[in-house]
Amino acid sequence: MYKETQHFRQPWLWVLLLGSLALVIYRGQPIHVGIMAGVLSLFWFLRLETRIDQEGIAYRWFPFQPTYRVIKWNQMEQVTVRRYSALGEFGGWGIRFSWNGTAHTVSGNWGIAIKQKGKKRTLLVGTQHPDEVRQRIGNEQLVGN
């Protein structure tokens, strides 16, 4: 089994968030400070978890999604690990929708592209370890199908 957990820890994001919090504190509006503190907490605790095993490829956004969304091997037409452009293809990171498909990404430019049987759009789940994922996908598909 392969597991990966990704957090929003990009320095540019935290400079932006903490700068916004500092500005709100400076302006002295308590309700806005509370809102910004909530946003910061959300980004700190939010994480994308991915699991690859004999059943298939599963992902979830913790804490909003308590259970994994599982795509079983027999539901997949094609699976590849590919480089992508978050801004160019999907308009950014997070849960994003485009004409070609849906992306679940946190950072970086590598993802697991899953073409499901009977569906036109591709699902892309971001990864920080493309070589490990490539190896695991090959091994699990042999076992899972």
Rank of each mutant, 00 (worst) to 15 (best):
residue 129 H to W: 06
residue 129 H to A: 12
residue 65 Q to L: 11
residue 108 G to Q: 06
residue 92 G to V: 11
residue 13 L to A: 07
residue 78 Q to V: 07
residue 133 V to C: 10
residue 3 K to N: 10
residue 34 G to S: 03
residue 27 R to I: 13
residue 66 P to M: 06
residue 58 A to Q: 01
residue 127 T to Y: 03
residue 80 T to W: 03
residue 43 F to T: 05
residue 50 T to Q: 00
residue 15 V to P: 01
residue 78 Q to F: 05
residue 110 W to V: 10
residue 51 R to M: 07
residue 107 S to N: 09
residue 126 G to K: 10
residue 69 R to E: 10
residue 133 V to S: 10
residue 82 R to H: 05
residue 114 I to T: 11
residue 27 R to H: 09
residue 145 N to G: 12
residue 49 E to Y: 00
residue 85 S to K: 09
residue 63 P to V: 08
residue 69 R to I: 13
residue 23 L to H: 03
residue 86 A to S: 12
residue 53 D to P: 00
residue 10 Q to V: 06
residue 3 K to E: 13
residue 26 Y to F: 15
residue 57 I to L: 06
residue 86 A to V: 08
residue 84 Y to Q: 10
residue 126 G to I: 12
residue 144 G to A: 15
residue 15 V to Y: 01
residue 73 W to E: 07
residue 125 V to F: 02
residue 95 I to V: 15
residue 135 Q to T: 13
residue 96 R to M: 14
residue 79 V to G: 12
residue 23 L to P: 02
residue 97 F to R: 13
residue 45 F to G: 02
residue 128 Q to R: 13
residue 10 Q to D: 09
residue 109 N to C: 08
residue 54 Q to F: 05
residue 22 A to R: 06
residue 60 R to F: 04
residue 39 V to R: 00
residue 61 W to T: 10
residue 121 R to K: 15
residue 130 P to Q: 12
residue 129 H to C: 04
residue 58 A to R: 00
residue 111 G to I: 12
residue 66 P to D: 11
residue 80 T to A: 11
residue 36 M to C: 07
residue 110 W to Y: 14
residue 59 Y to C: 04
residue 6 Q to R: 05
residue 31 I to F: 06
residue 76 M to L: 10
residue 68 Y to Q: 02
residue 55 E to M: 03
residue 79 V to D: 02
residue 45 F to E: 01
residue 17 L to W: 01
residue 61 W to K: 04
residue 22 A to L: 15
residue 122 T to V: 15
residue 40 L to D: 06
residue 117 K to L: 14
residue 82 R to G: 12
residue 32 H to S: 14
residue 7 H to D: 02
residue 13 L to S: 07
residue 132 E to V: 07
residue 143 V to D: 05
residue 30 P to E: 03
residue 97 F to P: 05
residue 95 I to C: 06
residue 45 F to M: 06
residue 132 E to L: 12
residue 131 D to E: 15
residue 73 W to A: 11
residue 106 V to Y: 04
residue 81 V to T: 13
residue 33 V to H: 00
residue 16 L to M: 14
residue 53 D to A: 08
residue 81 V to I: 14
residue 13 L to M: 11
residue 64 F to G: 15
residue 82 R to M: 12
residue 63 P to I: 08
residue 104 H to D: 10
residue 124 L to Y: 09
residue 117 K to A: 13
residue 138 G to Y: 10
residue 123 L to M: 13
residue 138 G to Q: 14
residue 106 V to I: 15
residue 79 V to P: 02
residue 116 Q to V: 12
residue 48 L to Y: 00
residue 18 L to K: 03
residue 56 G to E: 01
residue 36 M to E: 09
